[in-house]
Design a protein around this nucleic acid. Sequence first.
DNA 1: GTTGATTTGTCCGTATGTATG
DNA 2: ACATACATACGGACAAATCAA
Lengths: 240, 240
Amino acid sequence: MRRMSEEPRTSRIQRQVVQLILDRRLTAGAPLPTEAELMETLGVSRNSVREALKALQALDIVEIRHGFGTYVGKASLTPLVDGLTFRTLARHDDDTGALAEILQVREVLEEGLIRRVAATLTEAELDNLEGVVTRMESAGGTGRMGSTFPDLDREFHEALYASLGNALVPQLLGAFWTVFRRVSGARGWTDDPTPEITVRRHRDIVTALRARDVEGAQRAMAVHFRGIEARAAEESRGVG
Amino acid sequence: MRRMSEEPRTSRIQRQVVQLILDRRLTAGAPLPTEAELMETLGVSRNSVREALKALQALDIVEIRHGFGTYVGKASLTPLVDGLTFRTLARHDDDTGALAEILQVREVLEEGLIRRVAATLTEAELDNLEGVVTRMESAGGTGRMGSTFPDLDREFHEALYASLGNALVPQLLGAFWTVFRRVSGARGWTDDPTPEITVRRHRDIVTALRARDVEGAQRAMAVHFRGIEARAAEESRGVG
DNA sequence: GTTGATTTGTCCGTATGTATG
DNA sequence: ACATACATACGGACAAATCAA
């Protein structure tokens, strides 16, 4: 007769800590019991507590501040970023494939999302978007492309879907964007060689949105992604 | 004179282990150095090694088997599932909001994706989809709904996008699906009260696809999601 | 089936670094 | 400068799980 294998202590502690957060209705930033308190409450050693907290920290469910305390985390999508980055970098065989998959998901998402915001975008929001494009233009025109240009690109896509009121959307898109950029950096890719064209793609999107042309906006977004895909393919060809 | 705060040891070890996997071109399932070897190679204590490995395990970048060894993980999207589940459960204020956000992302994704597969789906794949729907029908018709019905629903949506050749898509959809189901379970929601309608929605999708009616397929998918949203809203209203 | 070797799981005690007052 | 509270890190020890002889 073999005893059913029990759950590992660390996993159990992880669940218990999560349950504690849920039960006490703690929100992000709220202080958690100290390691010593958790040791006593749960009846386990410090090592077990620490290993469980480290795992939860990796998921951004708890945040540990050295010499200060442990707090409820923001549960951001950084674990997704880390995982996707690792996946992409680890697939040496199917090099450009993993990035292309992420790009396709982003493309499908944004082409669908832009249809939904096209009708609800206010003039003020359109002005804001146009302002971002103008800043992209001046950033790209001043010779060498600083770190601001990609950030403005990200800002554009985030601002575009702000009116949806869906907090998950910008986080997901931001996660994909960050993975793309990290992998690009790790592979030593050059910056956008034709920023003027990229700026124009964005301006086309705003123009279509201002005209309340839903189909045109989606088409402009699709064209934008064709450019990104072509560039990614070009870069990976140049490296491989 | 204050020394610049150094990077925490555990974080550094995490990066080093990841780098080791990348440098040695290890793929999922490949054995990693033992804790003792890592201790010596990296010149750190066993606890530090273990905490780093626990964090990487939470990200599914490494897999630890008790009494056996440590291996390269599959880098699945389970961290995303854990994070989204926690987020949804932790937001007591905006209860149904977090689930609705996930549902909206899934909806935008699937409505866009079905357009792309509509043209490339083979007759064999359509037959397979129809088979899944038929099994759903019989599972729902036999009185009480076992655990097979939701699984068949998931199988349908996964098989639908298999021809895309994008491995990320089914994983992402599967992650959203799992979160939805876990949260439903945690809230004690009942099973689908009208399985016949759900089955019909799926059959409508297959019918449209078989007719190569792209618009119709997208519309059928949209209708399907309207039903899911309505049910979710109903359930959360009944609980709240 | 038992034993032994290997590897991870858990615990303890101690010392050190960090942030706050 | 000092004291307190807390997380970080180390070394040693034993328990539990797995596999192979």
